[in-house]
Amino acid sequence: MSDEISVHLLGPHNAHLLAGSDVFDSSVDPKQLAAFLAAPGHQMVFATIGARTVGFASGTVLLHPDKQPAFFINEVGVSENMRRRGIATSLCELLLKTARDSGCQSIWLATEADNIEARALYKRLNARETSGVVVYDWDGVK
């Protein structure tokens, strides 16, 4: 098996490559995958080595009547044994480009204060870290 890492924009033609991957919190649900693909503004990029998916990043275009489109990066994940190879950087670069190409004027995300690896990744990508923000959630969202 080749160790070459390939990065892809998710679409109907390659969505089958996500099946059986260990990069998500749970197994890929075919109905949820179809809904994700059908929903305008939802974007995902993923990385493969051969036929194995080893990482992904996803986000959503946010629309408001008084602002230009913004993009929220929902999640970035790489298989534990594949980290520190530049996969997350490549995924985020493609996701950022995809967001910009779709007209988004701003891009943002949130991560836990103790997630040192994620914070280092976003700093490498020239993101501006803010402070003084309080995050609220409902229903134990992870």
Results as ranks from 00 to 15, higher is better:
Pro40Phe: 08
Ala38Arg: 13
Leu62Glu: 13
Cys104Ala: 02
Gly103Pro: 00
Pro30Arg: 10
Gly103Lys: 04
Phe71Lys: 04
Asn74Phe: 14
Gly77Asn: 08
Leu91Gly: 05
Ala39Pro: 04
Lys67Trp: 06
Phe72Lys: 07
Met44Cys: 08
Ile73Asp: 09
Ser58Lys: 12
Thr53Arg: 02
Val54Trp: 07
Ala34Trp: 15
Thr60Val: 12
Leu63Trp: 11
Thr60Gly: 11
Leu96Pro: 02
Thr53Lys: 08
Gly50Ala: 08
Cys92Gly: 03
Glu75Asp: 15
Thr60Asn: 14
Ala99Cys: 05
Gly77Asp: 04
Glu80Asn: 14
Lys97Pro: 03
Ser79Val: 13
Gln43Pro: 00
Ala47Phe: 07
Gly86Phe: 08
Thr53Val: 03
Arg83Leu: 01
Gly50Gln: 07
Ala51Ser: 13
Phe56Lys: 07
Gln105Leu: 04
Cys92Asn: 10
Phe56Ala: 06
Thr98Pro: 01
Leu94Phe: 12
Phe46Trp: 10
Lys97Glu: 11
His42Ile: 02
Asn74Asp: 15
Cys104Lys: 00
Ser106His: 03
Ser58Trp: 06
Ile73Gly: 08
Asn74His: 15
Phe71His: 07
Lys67Pro: 00
Gly41Trp: 06
Leu109Val: 02
Ser58His: 07
Asp66Met: 12
Lys97Arg: 14
Arg84Cys: 00
Met44Tyr: 08
Leu62Met: 12
Ser79Tyr: 04
Val61Ala: 13
Asp66Trp: 13
Thr111Phe: 05
Gly103Ile: 03
Val76Asp: 11
Ile107Phe: 01
Gly55Ser: 02
Arg84Asp: 01
Ile49Lys: 10
Leu96Glu: 08
Met82Gly: 01
Phe72Gln: 12
Asn81Trp: 02
Leu96Gly: 01
Ala99Lys: 03
Asp101Pro: 02
Gly50Met: 09
Leu95Lys: 07
Gly59Ser: 09
Phe72Trp: 13
Asn81Glu: 10
Ile49Ser: 09
Gln43Phe: 11
Cys104Glu: 01
Thr53Gln: 04
Ser106Gly: 00
Gly77Thr: 10
Cys104Asn: 00
Val76Thr: 14
Gly59Trp: 11
Leu94Ile: 11
Phe46Thr: 06
Gly50Asp: 06
Thr111Ile: 06
Ser90Ile: 04
Pro40Met: 07
Leu109Pro: 01
Gln43Ala: 07
Val76Phe: 09
Lys31Ile: 15
Leu109Glu: 01
Ile107Ser: 00
Asp101Ala: 10
Leu33Asn: 14
Pro69Asp: 00
Lys31Trp: 15
Val78His: 00
Arg52Ser: 09
Leu63Gly: 12
